[in-house]
Design a protein around this nucleic acid. Structure first.
Lengths: 201, 201
DNA sequence: TCTTTAACTTGACACTGTTCAGATTAGGTC
DNA sequence: GACCTAATCTGAACAGTGTCAAGTTAAAGA
């Protein structure tokens, strides 16, 4: 694990960490392969031996992002009654993740920069999405098909809200007060979609 | 309007058209300023005299995109009874726009590549969004604030669904059959959100 | 016609991702 | 311990990018 010398020791992880750092403080557009190599203290050509090319590295980062997101959704749904609260918690967790790790989040959903059709990536994305389904299935009385539709509604709404929020449509996501505005608006949206008290209007 | 000679005649429009063409057949990531200049038959430095820089040109294209999108939403809402159908039509129009002009659509919502805080851009975006509000306000019995929330729900859902669809989460948006799958799923989502027949469950 | 000014080009600079031949070293084998 | 192989990384190069400063061309107004 020595960071100096001709052989890095654990360049793979160092590059992933460097990429996440860049995404964190420069955003998705700020990433360059050379900068990642620079931060890992290695030549521009080094990453190719581990990840093939830039999309290869980014795909690895995206996979981990989906796993984190899935875990956050799972955790948000635990031990919440009534069941509606679980969906609220998941929506809040989804947007909170998007705001907190905005660069990574944006990268996770920009297929053009990832390895098109990577099987592990598809699986990670599906697994995260499924976290919505398990909650929705418990809530919606209906066929599995209806549950799938409801889960798609939940995902689409959370995702659309997060994306629009990141583009500054609901307030500046770069400031504390802006983020509070955004989350307040989100709570109203969730309440509209899945009212907590009464049955749906 | 002569296309040849030292002075182009109408380079402004030519560059915008070239940009839209690139976005149409290469996608948002495929755009380069030099390629736009190339297609307009002009040197790489020429665009700067009209748009300052690449974000300047892209912002102009995005503004027109929002205007088109707003017009499509407005048109979709015309002459449809019952009122729920207007929202359905708007959702369908939103996603149809995203699928048809995917490159431009993606660019419209990638602030990092546009002029941050351009006033005309903000207005164009707001105007498009407002098309949701006018329909929702007529539908939702409630305070203006509630109408705003409902409009945000509509926008978020349509936008999220469109984005996820473009990333291939509901089928391949590049094929006819994939697009049919996507639109079929969307119809179910809209029916879940705003059931046509009965009152909301 | 002359001159001002807008439009455009040329050439340069600092970047980018990727490739390829070569240098280095880690780890297993004698 | 010495040797060899295979993995790892470097250095230099290439084609491409956005943008800038200085120079060239032509349109428009006096």
């Amino acid at each position: 694990m020595p960071e100096a010398g001709y052989h890095h020791g654990d360049l793979q992880e160092a590059l992933i960490a460097a990429t996440e750092a860049i995404l964190a403080d420069q955003g998705a557009e700020g990433f360059t392969l050379r900068e990642a190599a620079r931060r890992a203290g290695v030549s521009p050509a080094a990453p190719s031996h581990h990840f093939g090319n830039a999309p290869g590295l980014l795909t690895e980062v995206a996979i981990r992002g989906y796993q984190e997101l899935g875990a956050a959704l799972k955790q948000a749904a635990e031990k919440k009654e009534p069941l509606h609260l679980r969906l609220h918690a998941q929506g809040l967790a989804y947007v909170a993740f998007a705001l907190k790790y905005s660069g990574r989040f944006q990268m996770m959903f920009s297929n053009k920069r990832l390895v098109a059709g990577d099987e592990r990536l598809r699986k990670a994305s599906r697994d995260a999405h499924r976290e919505f389904e398990v909650v929705v299935a418990a809530l919606v009385a209906g066929t599995p098909k209806q549950a799938k539709v409801a889960a798609t509604v939940a995902w689409s709404t959370a995702h659309g809200f997060a994306k629009l929020a990141l583009e500054g449509k609901f307030g500046d996501p770069g400031t504390d007060s802006g983020r509070r505005e955004i989350m307040a608006m989100l709570r109203q949206v969730l309440e509209y979609l899945w009212p907590i008290e009464s049955a749906r209007r």
